[in-house]
Design a protein around this nucleic acid. Sequence first.
DNA 1: ACTCGGATTCTCT
DNA 2: GAGAATCCGAGTA
Length: 244
Amino acid sequence: MLGAPEPALSLPKACPELVEGGLDLETWETMPGRLLPRAFFAEPPEQVAPRLLGKLLAHRTGGRLLAGRIVEAEAYLGPHNDPPDPAAHAHRGPTPRNRVLFGPAGHAYVYAIYGRYFCMNISCEAEGRAGCMLLRALEPVAGAGQMALNRGLAPGAPAKLLASGPSRLCQALGLTRLRHNGLDLADPASPLQVRDDGFAVSEVLVTARIGVHEAADRPLRFALPGNKCVSGPKSLTGECILLG
DNA sequence: ACTCGGATTCTCT
DNA sequence: GAGAATCCGAGTA
């Protein structure tokens, strides 16, 4: 656990320059909300993933803040689980690529995919034990204009096109393996953090994971029901659970 | 050393 | 709905 919780800072609800250009950090002491402590992440991914929904992923870059609300995440299980999760990068044990997943919880695991994209995960479980959550979609909260630029889109592009999909999300926030893999998300000094601004989530949609071919039927994808920024086909159904 | 295919996205039909 | 783009990590020899 970290020390005294930082004071919560609420954002102006509809500040156009904030939403468009990104928060100017010269005028703001801290990022919005409260930094999530490491303990939040030090649990199995199927438990942490649903709790991640509604939290903010915040990236401080170029003197600006790019932030979005997490609306979709998937759990990938480490090799200590029974049954195992063959879809997980960590399921055969540590390798040079996935070593972050076997370290302490709350660190970024960013990897390259298809030679042109990145995906971002957050490590979880106790140190020495692997597990992670893949961040699949954000609803833009700050810096939508910059996100559009990062994505090669016009400044007024629809929110749905900015960070809906794991690699779109990385593109929008400017996340790369070289610069962000291994970052400690629970460090108050980190440019990349997960924060809680008090957004309440009561219901969560649970479905199979997208794009995996092994363990394809396991209910390990979690999303905010009805949110327009959730990725994937609408035909992908599942059940709604109440968050405990 | 060599092969295989991927936790994706975009474009075109 | 199908096919291409495009690199490297991981498994096999």
